[in-house]
């Protein structure tokens, strides 16, 4: 199937204040020369630890932060260049589901108004059409019609996330960015939301950019995975390939760090502990950004930054030792 989203050399940088002169500027490259594609109807998961740039990359794709350079093409059109009416058209096609269903819903609006809001601000539909769409959305996400009149505080966490999902679906988007959509929810409720997201994907042919740090969830939800570390994609492969043969030492460590209930796996798999902390994102080391914590680091890793290289099956890895 064709690529719906194509991100090329995306870079997002933030100006930071550091000592050393009143006009000295430093930059933090939160997303540094990142490229990936997502096929229509599929799910790309971006995984990585806090500070790895996964959320910033997604925000840049949705035009919620400004990209410094690079290209983001949605169905062939570069959306970073759009303004005014064209941007409004694009915003209908790219919607967001946020992490925290408590802080991402306006507490003073009724559920119905929250779901309707994207239609009011982005689309040019009649009031009757909008009402019909909202009714259908409530049904699609498993909420009862009478709940439209309620305020966010009258819902449970899982139900609130359903409202957030309905809102994201309102403008019939092609791409939905799910930023940690279940990490604020109780474990038993997570399954309800994950199942709903997969059902909606099937029903509406949605494409997901799925951000998560929970690798079990990622394995269940994604078709391909990009692993980020300090603003870089260090490994990018389809689901089976990445989980069966992780190549980057960081990915290997990440996978081995997940606690598991499977006793056989626990017995045979040694946990790879990566010592220390990530480097200062403003003063990055010259070579590989993972070199100071990498159990396999060689001399070259300290001096030369590895490129993201693809093997014949499209499994891409940024490591000198692969």
């Amino acid at each position: 199937m064709s690529d719906l989203l194509k991100v090329e050399n995306l870079t997002v940088r933030f100006e930071v204040k550091r000592g050393g002169g009143w006009n000295k500027k430093s930059y933090l490259y939160a997303v540094d020369d990142v490229s990936f594609t997502v096929k229509k109807g599929e799910t790309l998961a971006i995984v990585g630890e806090s500070g790895s740039g996964k959320t910033t990359a997604a925000l840049a794709v949705a035009r919620l932060v400004k990209a410094y350079s690079g290209k983001v093409a949605l169905a062939g059109e570069d959306i970073l260049q759009k303004e005014a009416e064209a941007l409004r058209q694009t915003r209908q096609k790219v919607q967001f589901i946020f992490q925290d269903p408590y802080s991402s819903l306006n507490p003073r609006k009724r559920a119905e108004a929250i779901v309707r809001e994207p239609l009011d601000s982005l689309s040019r539909k009649s009031e009757d059409e909008k009402t019909k769409i909202v009714d259908d959305l409530f049904e699609a996400v498993g909420l009862r019609p009478e709940q439209q009149r309620l305020f966010p505080h009258q819902f449970s966490g899982g139900q609130r996330q359903r409202i957030g999902i309905a809102r994201a679906l309102a403008t019939q988007p092609e791409l939905i960015i799910c930023d940690e959509p279940v990490s604020a929810l109780d474990v038993a409720v997570q399954a309800q939301i994950l199942n709903l997201l997969r059902k909606l994907q099937k029903d509406f042919g949605l494409t997901y950019l799925f951000i998560s740090h929970d690798l079990g969830v990622v394995q269940h939800m994604s078709d391909s995975i990009a692993v980020m570390y300090m603003g870089k994609v260090v490994e990018h492969a389809d689901r089976l390939s990445l989980f069966q043969t992780p190549r980057h030492p960081y990915t290997q460590a990440l996978l081995s760090a997940v606690p598991t209930v499977d006793r056989a796996k626990r017995a045979q798999q040694k946990r790879i502990l990566i010592p220390g902390d990530a480097p200062d994102p403003v003063n990055l080391p010259a070579g590989c950004r993972f070199a100071n914590r990498c159990p396999a680091a060689q001399a070259i890793c300290q001096t030369v930054e590895p490129e993201l290289k693809s093997d014949t099956n499209g499994h891409r890895t940024a490591c000198h030792l692969v």
Partner: peptide, 28 residues
Amino acid sequence: KGLIECVPHIQSDPSLERHDLVEVPGIV
């Protein structure tokens, strides 16, 4: 049983086919 089954546990050899997660309906 629900708490154990509702979580997608990571597998080192995942299958291509994926089933819906077991839900524990409702809330506390």
